[in-house]
Every structure is written in C-alpha cells, then in structure tokens.
Design a protein around this nucleic acid. Structure first.
Lengths: 334, 334
DNA sequence: TTGAAAGCGATACCAT
DNA sequence: ATGGTATCGCTTTCAA
C-alpha cells in the first residue's frame, strides 16, 4: 500500500501539502493539487485511516449499543444509523447490551476502548445517573428511546403518551365502551407513558377505567397470552383490547382464537410498534407506528452535526406516532 | 487519558516492558509485572487501540457485509458474529450491501478502507470471479451462504439440497402424492439447491413432478401470494405445498385462506428458514431450520482461528438443516 | 529479563 | 501557498 510519503515524493511536494489536498481544507494552488491528485491516482493511494485517527485524534467511527442485534426492532434502527453514517464516511461499531446492566456497561466500555467519536445508545437497564455521568465525560452520547431531563438535547424519543392516547382513542371513537388493557412492565418509561395516554383517552371520552380489565405483561408475546387468559377469566366483558406492544397483541390474539373469539367482530385488538409481524398475523394488526428507523437516522444526524460539524442538518428530538389501520379493529356490533 | 509513558514512569520501568505486560507474550518477572499492573490500575490506564493498530498493523476489527441490517434473517447472523468477536476483544464494523452489485462492492471497499483484519461477507450480487480475486489479495475473507469451489475453505454453508429434500420427504412420507412447489429465484444457488433436493425426494418416492404445480417466486412474501394464485388457477389439484422459504409460505398461506382452504386439513404447507414469523402466523409453520446464527458464530471462529491464531477452535464448513414440526403440515385426508 | 530507539502513516503548528 | 518537523501512543527489533 502506498503511503503519503511516496505520494509526496512522486508529486514533488511536501508531506504537508499532500495532507492538505486530502483534507482539502487549506488553500492549495490548482497546479499543485493536480500534481498530487495525479500521483495518488498513479500509486493507487488510499489513506490509512488508522494513522489518520492517531494523528487527528478522531476515529471517524461511532459506537452503537442496542439491546439485541436480532429481533424485529433493532434491525430497523441499525439500518437507519448505518445508512446515514456511511454516506458521511463514518463507520459504525456495534455491540449488544442484552437489557442487562452489567452487560450494557460492559458494551459501553468496549465501545469506549475502541475510541469512538460518539456513542448512540439504546439502553434499558443502566441508570439515569450512570448516563448523566457518562455524558459529563468527553465522549458525546445520544440516547434513543430514553428521556432524561438533564440530557434533553441528547435524547431522541417517541411521544409514547400520544401513541397510547391514539390507540385507545380510535377504539373509543368507533363506539367501544368496554376496553381492556395489557401494559408493558411499568418500570420502563415507555410502558408507563403509553398507559398514561390510554387513561387520558378514557377520561376524555368519559369511559370508566376498570381495574378488572387491566393486566401487566412484560412486552413478550407469551405474556400477551397469559394476560389475555387472565382478562378472560375475570368474567368482565370487553369488546376491545389495547396492547402496549405488537408482540403481546399477537400473543393475546392467539388466545382469543383459542377461545373462539372472532377478531375483530367480537373483539377488536390494537397493538403498538408496527413491527413486521403485525402484517403477518391474521387478522392483520391495527397498531401505532414507531418510526424507529427514522429515529436511528436522526440519532446519526445528531452525531454528524454535533461531532462532525455538518452544521446544515436539521434535528428533531421527539417523534409523533400515528395510527396504522389494518384489520384487527372495528366498531363493536351491538 | 493516561498513556503508556506515564505508566512506565510511575512503575519505574521502560516503555517496552509496559508493552510486554500488556500483551503478555514475552517473559516478564513477576515483580516487574506487578509493579506495572499496579501503576496501570492507579492511573486508570486503558491502551489506545488506535495506536496499537498503527504500530502492530492489526486493527483488531472484522468487517461484516450483509444484504440488509433489518429483516428477520441478518439480525441472527450479526448476533452470532458479534457475540463471538466481542468475547475475543475484536470489534465488528458493519456495512449493508442491499443485494446490489455496485452497493456490495462499495461496502467492501468501505470495509477495506477501515483496515479490517478480515471480512465476513454475505453477498449475493457480486460475481464469483470478483470474490476469487478479492480473496487472492492480502485481506482474508469468509463467505456465508455462498459456495465457491476455489474458495471452499472460506465458505460457511448450509446444505440446502438436503433441506429441500427433507421438506418434501416429510410430506411424501405422510402420504401426499400431489405436491406443488414454489421456488426462489433460480439464479440464486440456495434456491437451486433446495429445488434439487425437492426433486430428489420426489424421485425417491416415485412421485411424478408436474410442471403445472411449479411456480418461481423471488423469496418475498408477495411473490408467495402471486405464485399461489397462479398455482390455484391451474386447476390441477394438490394437497401439499413446499415453499423455498418462510416468507413465500406466509404469502401463500394468506392466499389459501382467502380461497377458503383449510391448512393443514385441505392443504399442507411447509416453508424453509425457520424465521420468527413462522411462529407467528396461523397455523404455525412447519419448516426447515436454517441455523444462521450458528453459522455466523462459525464464520467468526474461522477468523479467530485463521487470523488471530486461536488454534484451538474447531471449524465446520457445512451445516445440516433439520425439520421443525409445527402445525401447517399433516397427512392428507382421503 | 529489561531498555533504547526506530518506526507505523498520518496531522498540524510554525516558518518561510 | 508551501515546506519542515514534532507528535499521536504504541509495537518491535536489537542490544545489553
């Protein structure tokens, strides 16, 4: 591999000049620039990114931590980030945190040790305090789907409360008055917010919230099933079910089917997230869209703008979810 | 951040010695080693991986190219790779190739420019020749799901022919004699191999292959739907349908439902890949397991063994698929 | 077993 | 506008 030395020699200019044309920041005369470019071409020169990093103290790499690499959710996010970063010539180093505190910290440590210029984090187990301290260091971080007031500007979030509100509101607007709710684990802020939105819609329509029609799941499809069973066992009638995410909705729908309940004729079901599976299950799931890919892109742009000085980029911190109409929800028959 | 200089000074030893204890390859006396370790501890020293790379000419990073970052398939693969690599302290740089030749080449160029020590490639559009040439260079590559005789040892593959054989054989063994087949695009070797396996099973059971009961899709679910429609339109009866992947099976199943066909009572359907969605659709899909996560791990081990000298690792180049029994296939009713 | 010193391939400051 | 040179933090001979 050719080095900058050979280029400078062949072009008959100094090291510094070659460096200048590479980073075309300083003014170089047209003639010199062309000589250098020609020499590079001739040698098939490619800058050594590691040497660049050492000298410039910039690795041009951004670290990403997600809970899992597989699954229906993170792929979209990574995809959005990778797209945006690669177009800017930055690369992406990925680690998984497995929703466990130790593992998340470990992943972050790992990324730090690879000298990333910034970190994009989708963490769940680590504490606010930890993140605040981390952000106070000299490595910039962006948080996806996590809101910490002190780190406001670094957070890219979905308005989960609004999503929860919309999910319930559409059902109410269709005339349902007996709604059940399966929530996520309440220690997760998104679960809490979605639930809050549900309650707001209920209040707005003057529909009484019935604790018998509430069950708390853990965002997995199996918990959707068990919660649904529990709800059915209460004996309290309901014509609509709101689930805090699609996977639980899928689990609940399966149980409904086993109980001979027709969806949506006898029971309307809505989910949240708009995962791929929402289109595969039958009937197709009406749900709330979570633009996680777009949010990933936005996190990447945040980094591009704040770390790599691409000033022109427009940033947005909170995204508004919308309803995706499909087949699993309809007006109640009376 | 502390550097090796400060460590050496605090420990009262030379640079070289500090380096030795870090890479504990050369013999260092117990006493010296402890002094150095203590100094590191005290300073909170972390080696600068970039400087290490520049000096040692090893970046300790492996480049991965997949077609897409999202989707049900690559996530599993990435997950397997990341796991294995991180445990070995190597990091993973990821790029997407979008199943397009230009984009794949571009991605590979990008990874090369980041000085990866090796590349793990899941490419579809790029030619064998290109890969052979690439492999002849000084950057080692591993190929997942692609078999090139000249690069045999670098290929981690599934025995697709066997998978196709098993999928069809189970149906035949249950007594089906009228089988339809929806293939993938025949220019992809896995599609071709799966189909070959199908034919072998048919021949083995003395069942005649009927071209009216064959349709070629493109591995997407929408093509599963259209192929199913086409098959149904032929008017040729069949009691079982083999699809070359799960997504097409899902598409076909939807069309079957629209036509009022009971699965599996009136029509058995089997897929291939064992994606998550196979468990979400109804009835749950009987399919062939594609251990892509395991294969990702294996690719990573290949790199660990051949590039990072972890001699002890056991390697395996071809994986054998197995049948996953679920609900979508049953004996024909007569 | 340990130390001295020459790179690795760029960047960036200071001159000119 | 261009050149000289110190520097980034570590690895790796070569000597001692």
């Amino acid at each position: 591999m050719a080095t900058i030395y050979q280029v400078s020699e062949l072009a008959g200019v100094s090291l510094a000049t070659v460096s200048r044309v590479m980073n075309n920041n300083a003014r170089v005369s047209e003639a010199t620039r062309n000589k250098v470019l020609a020499a590079m071409e001739q040698l098939g020169y490619r800058p050594n990114s590691i040497a660049q990093s050492l000298a410039s103290n910039r690795s041009n790499s951004v670290g990403i931590l997600v809970s899992e690499l597989h699954g229906p959710f993170y792929g979209e996010m990574l995809s959005g980030i990778e797209n945006e970063c690669r177009a800017a010539g930055k690369h992406v180093i990925i680690a998984a945190g497995h929703s466990e505190e130790a593992s998340e910290k470990d992943g972050i440590e790992f990324l730090i040790s690879r000298s990333c210029d910034a970190l994009i984090l989708h963490v769940e187990a680590v504490s606010d305090d930890y993140l605040i301290k981390l952000a106070a260091g000299n490595l910039p971080i962006v948080l996806i789907n996590r809101y910490i007031p002190q780190l406001q500007d670094n957070c890219i979030c979905l308005n989960n409360e609004l999503g929860g509100y919309l999910a319930t509101k559409q059902l109410l607007a269709q005339g349902h008055t007996q709604l059940a709710y399966i929530s996520g684990p309440m220690w997760k802020s998104d679960a809490k917010d979605r639930y809050a939105g549900h309650l707001r819609a209920m209040a707005e329509f003057g529909v009484r919230f019935d604790t018998l029609l509430f069950a708390q799941g853990d965002f997995q499809d199996s918990s959707g099933s068990s919660c649904m069973q529990q709800l059915l066992a209460q004996g309290q009638a309901f014509t609509a079910l709101v689930c805090a995410n699609d996977e639980m909705a899928a689990g609940a729908m399966e149980v409904a089917r086993e109980h001979g309940l027709q969806v949506p004729q006898q029971l309307s079901i809505v989910g949240f997230d708009n995962l791929i599976l929402a289109r595969y299950i039958h009937p197709k799931l009406t749900t709330i869209d979570y633009p996680i890919g777009e949010m990933g892109r936005m996190a990447a742009r945040w980094v591009l703008k704040n770390i790599y000085q691409q000033q022109a980029l427009q940033l947005k911190n909170v995204f508004e979810p919308v309803v995706v109409w499909r087949e699993s929800a309809a007006a109640p028959v009376r």
